[in-house]
């Protein structure tokens, strides 16, 4: 083999070698997310009007520790939430044979955004608000809890059929991203 041929082969091998060593590269990054505390609602206490009499309306305030409705909310501390109550128009006997009107006025709801209050001690958050509208600015308390208290009024007719009446009150809560 002549010297000329030998040198050319060396050159070709070098080119090939360099190209292979740089053909591919990769790098990694991460997808990251921090999931906040699960939101929960617990029905803690029914709205209990107790015994009522035909033709005699009865009001239950939102500040009665024994009888006001109490919903307990837990979630991410200080996170904004949306609350929406679905309120009944009537209470009914279990067999559906009679209804009794229930009404809610514009001040029969309170929301404790501190998370430690009872119906009679709520001071922080939203006091005596309208349960038929969704207030803005509601947050889970710094301790990760909030409470909603609700009162109402039943209007039995003069000849209201005797018996135990009931109706569902539903609280829906969701994070609003604030």
């Amino acid at each position: 083999m002549s010297p000329r041929i030998t040198l050319l082969l060396v050159a070709v091998l070098l080119v090939t070698s360099v190209a292979d060593s740089t053909a591919q590269d990769f790098d990694d990054r991460s997808a990251t997310a921090r999931v906040m505390t699960v939101l929960s609602v617990t029905a803690t206490q029914d709205l209990n009007f107790g015994k009522i009499f035909g033709g005699v309306p009865k009001v239950m305030g939102n500040d009665d520790d024994d009888s006001s409705a109490v919903f307990s909310i837990t979630g991410e501390a200080s996170a904004g939430i949306s609350v929406q109550l679905t309120l009944p128009e009537y209470l009914s006997l279990a067999d559906g044979s009679a209804n009794m009107t229930i009404v809610f006025n514009n001040s029969c709801c309170s929301i404790d955004t501190i998370g430690t209050a009872t119906p009679s001690t709520v001071v922080g958050g939203f006091v005596d608000i309208d349960p038929r509208t969704s207030p803005s600015g509601v947050i889970v308390g710094s301790g990760g809890a909030a409470n909603l208290f609700l009162g109402g009024k039943v209007l039995p007719s003069a000849n209201q059929k005797a018996g135990a009446y009931s109706g569902d009150i539903v609280l829906s809560v969701s994070y609003n991203g604030t």
């Binding site: 609602v41 709205l47 107790g50 039943v154 009931s166 569902d168 829906s172």
Partner: peptide
């Protein structure tokens, strides 16, 4: 996105 809780309003007519 929602969680819900249900309580009852109850009354006994005498």
């Amino acid at each position: 996105a929602q969680v819900t809780g249900t309580i009852q309003a109850i009354a006994t007519v005498a």
